[in-house]
């Protein structure tokens, strides 16, 4: 593998992590905003909203981790 290919791999890994984190951050942010709104509108359902929020956040995080793994493979190949 040439130097250029290596440089491109590092670049794509770095960019990939950035884009992944951007997407996941906005996703979890929207999720938390919606959960907070639900909890403040209906405080008695706050517990349910929190559990559902954590499950959804974990699933979003799961897709992010797949992307991160691809980036790690790119960076250390």
């Amino acid at each position: 593998m040439g130097e250029l290919a290596k440089a491109m791999a590092y670049l794509s890994a770095g960019l990939g992590v950035g884009i992944t984190v951007f997407g996941v951050g906005s996703g979890i942010g929207r999720l938390a905003a919606a959960a907070l709104e639900a909890a403040s509108r209906q405080p008695e359902a706050a517990g349910d909203a929190r559990t559902t929020m954590i499950i959804a956040a974990a699933l979003i995080e799961g897709t992010a981790l797949f992307a991160i793994i691809v980036c790690i493979l790119l960076a250390f190949k």
Partner: peptide, 9 residues
């Protein structure tokens, strides 16, 4: 797989 990677990462 997601469980594995989440905890590990």
């Amino acid at each position: 797989f997601a469980l594995t990677v989440r905890l590990f990462a």
